[in-house]
């Protein structure tokens, strides 16, 4: 078995009477693409926020990149990358400036920043766009750039919160190629998504319903287990029992 990068035990988060995340446990291994699925309101975002050190669990424990999520949130932040659902680079800065800004935020030295910038731009075939304002790029390019920037400091884990919502199928395809490439390089990918076809690209998938992890396995085995033709069907079967509305 390969190295565990994320490990969660009995993680629970309550807001008053409402239990957003109820006693979830799972492990994510190095180099995996871990799909974190669930309907809106199932508790995905809350769970992910706890893993990123943005929110303290009510009870339970977990480690991310070897750091405790309750006590070492600041260390976790240094070792993870994060790309949010909403496009979140600075539109009024150029491609190069955005990379430089986030490299500085993550504490890369000047020398490394220069090297890393060339490397990322090269990989994206973006070298000609270095001085283009991010605001003027098409959405698909922006998303790719955002992913590249999330990995600027070579994090062990990258959290992607619905990275491809609103992106056209071709760009989505290209985007997933980038994800594969990063995973092959040893980066662990933790991704939430709405698209069930994307779920099939993942190494393993967990499905959250009503704050609990109801299923966790490879897409193929999940389909077998639920006697389903596709992940979409698996998801529907599980989500049917959901008590919480959208």
């Amino acid at each position: 078995m390969s190295k565990t990068v994320i490990s969660v035990r009995n993680l629970t988060k309550r807001f008053g009477n409402f239990t957003a995340v109820n006693n979830i446990s799972f492990d994510v291994y190095r180099g995996e693409i871990f799909g974190f699925l669930g309907a809106n309101g199932a508790g995905k975002t809350t769970a992910m926020r706890m893993l990123c050190g943005l929110s303290y669990p009510t009870s339970g424990s977990g480690t991310v990149a070897g750091f405790d999520i309750t006590r070492e949130g600041e260390m976790i932040k240094r070792h993870i990358g994060y790309m949010s659902q909403r496009f979140s680079l600075y539109n009024d800065l150029t491609v190069g400036e955005n990379i430089k800004l986030f490299a500085a935020i993550y504490g890369l030295s000047k020398q490394n920043t220069g090297k890393r910038t060339d490397e990322l731009l090269d990989r994206l075939n973006f070298s000609s766009e270095r001085n283009t304002l991010v605001g003027s790029l098409p959405l698909g390019w922006k998303q790719k750039l955002a992913f590249a920037i999330a990995t600027v400091h070579r994090p062990e884990v990258v959290f992607l919160d619905e990275p491809t919502s609103g992106v056209d199928p071709i760009t989505r395809r290209q985007f997933w190629e980038m994800i594969y490439e990063a995973a092959e390089g040893g980066t662990t990918i933790f991704v939430t998504t709405h698209y069930m076809d994307e779920a099939e690209y993942c190494s393993r998938v967990s499905i959250m319903v009503d704050g609990e992890v109801r299923a966790l396995d490879t897409p193929a085995r999940l389909q077998q287990q639920f006697a389903a033709e596709s992940m979409n069907e698996v998801f529907r079967t599980l989500a049917r029992d959901a008590e919480r509305g959208e």
Partner: peptide, 13 residues
């Protein structure tokens, strides 16, 4: 715009 979220996940306090 959403940049605050990314900044909050970064190591910057």
């Amino acid at each position: 715009v959403g940049t605050m979220e990314v900044l909050l996940v970064s190591p910057v306090r």
